[in-house]
């Protein structure tokens, strides 16, 4: 009976990149404020990842519109009860924070670091928002399954954290910073967020009961259980715990987490709109 909004691959990528951008940013901000000078590589990687990703997010959102040239119309209103409305604003504001933080993260000066930490503490709130609001957007619609999923925003946030941290991990691995102290802390943070994400995925499925069928049974079940829960969460967690000293294993685990994050958004969006 109800109509699908036809949010397809562009929006799947938007959700995925938005999660990583938000997650990488808030991880960087927390590492900057609460970590040590030896975590600088994490901070820089996080902020430098967030910026191009949030730019890509903006482009994807605009391109998906029916009339892209009218995207600014969304800035003519602000409905605080409407995730789509706040989201349109927040993507822009977060983009600005990402830009400032990225620039500041390239500077070695102490003054820049002080400013950067303050900016990061505020920007990270927008990072949390970007990673999670799309889940609330879905659960505040009338679509079956989405509208029953009270934990969708919470789950998207945890996934944003795990994928953001995974992206930073890969960046460190690729740029030869994997031997730093930040790597170990990142791994700890990733274990923790994977566990939170697993708990939330299972809680979501349990709370949904019969309404979870689009995910847990039917054509998307294999992707959900195998792709997200298995390959995207359980396997990387086990890999990390078992082979924690091997950097390559750590990088592989990060790749799997990223795949899982993509699969999550893909199955959530597509299973309802088949």
């Amino acid at each position: 009976m109800l109509k699908s909004p036809h949010w397809e691959m562009m929006i799947v990528w938007y959700f995925f990149f938005g999660g990583i951008a938000g997650g990488a940013y808030f991880t960087a901000a927390i590492a900057d404020v609460f970590g040590t000078a030896r975590d600088r590589a994490v901070v820089r990687a996080g902020y430098l990842l967030a910026l191009p990703l949030v730019a890509a997010c903006g482009l994807l959102l605009i391109a998906d519109l029916g009339v892209p040239s009218r995207f600014l119309n969304m800035l003519s209103t602000f409905k605080f009860w409407d995730p789509m409305s706040i989201g349109a604003w927040a993507v822009g504001v977060f983009g600005m924070f990402s830009f400032v933080s990225a620039v500041l993260s390239l500077s070695p000066s102490e003054t820049a670091a002080r400013v950067r930490r303050r900016v990061g503490l505020v920007g990270m709130l927008f990072g949390f928002f970007l990673a999670s609001y799309t889940g609330v957007l879905l659960s505040s619609s009338a679509m079956p399954f989405w509208s029953d999923a009270r934990l969708m925003g919470a789950l998207f946030l945890a996934s944003g954290a795990s994928t953001g941290i995974a992206a930073i991990t890969l960046a460190l691995f690729a740029t030869g910073h994997a031997a730093g102290e930040g790597w170990g802390k990142l791994k700890h943070a990733d274990h923790y967020s994977i566990v939170v994400e697993l708990v939330l995925v299972l809680a979501l499925v349990v709370l949904l009961g019969a309404a979870a069928k689009p995910l847990t049974a039917g054509p998307y079940a294999a992707l959900f259980w195998g792709g997200l829960v298995g390959v995207g969460l359980v396997v990387p967690l086990v890999l990390d715990l078992v082979a924690s000293r091997a950097r390559t294993v750590g990088a592989l685990a990060a790749v799997l987490v990223l795949i899982g994050g993509f699969v999550l958004r893909y199955v959530v969006l597509m299973s309802v709109q088949a």
């Binding site: 109800l2 109509k3 519109l65 119309n73 009338a142």
Partner: peptide, 14 residues
């Protein structure tokens, strides 16, 4: 209208 389609998914009657 810029065609975001959120209204499409928000009508309880489709």
């Amino acid at each position: 209208c810029n065609g975001c389609r959120y209204c499409v998914s928000s009508c309880p009657f489709g």
